[in-house]
């Protein structure tokens, strides 16, 4: 419940405040979102399996975001930024789908 409220408040703040993101940070935002979504789905799956731990969730959320951004940064420095972003997104999307499948099985037994 709090998670949904937090999400809505975040969206509302984003719309009202309209923050200006520094230019150098901009390429990493989409990757950071996908990484965070991966952590969210992982956390939800753990919750369904009654293995959820809020500390693990917080750490995985932040480390996912940081590692994904770092990989893209590294790719940019090596001159393979576009490929690296694609690779990171593909891997994270695969994890999200795997987690979503597990959640679906746990929640609907289907």
């Amino acid at each position: 419940m709090i998670a949904i409220i937090g999400l809505l408040v975040g969206v509302a703040v984003g719309i009202l405040w309209h923050p200006v993101v520094p230019l150098w940070l901009e390429p990493y935002l989409p990757i950071a979102i996908v990484a965070a979504l991966d952590a969210v789905f992982g956390g939800f799956r753990a919750l369904m399996q009654r293995r959820f731990d809020d500390r693990i969730f917080a750490v995985s959320f932040l480390s996912n975001v940081l590692i994904a951004s770092f990989l893209v940064f590294l790719g940019d420095q090596l001159g393979v930024g576009a490929q690296m972003s694609t690779g990171v997104v593909v891997v994270l999307a695969m994890r999200i789908f795997a987690n979503a499948a597990a959640i679906r099985r746990l929640l609907f037994r289907a």
Binding site: L7, L8, I33, A36
Partner: peptide, 16 residues
């Protein structure tokens, strides 16, 4: 804390 993290996520999505 989880709510705060989700707030961050919502903010990120909105910004992008």
């Amino acid at each position: 804390m989880i709510g705060a993290l989700f707030l961050l996520l919502g903010l990120l999505i909105t910004v992008v």
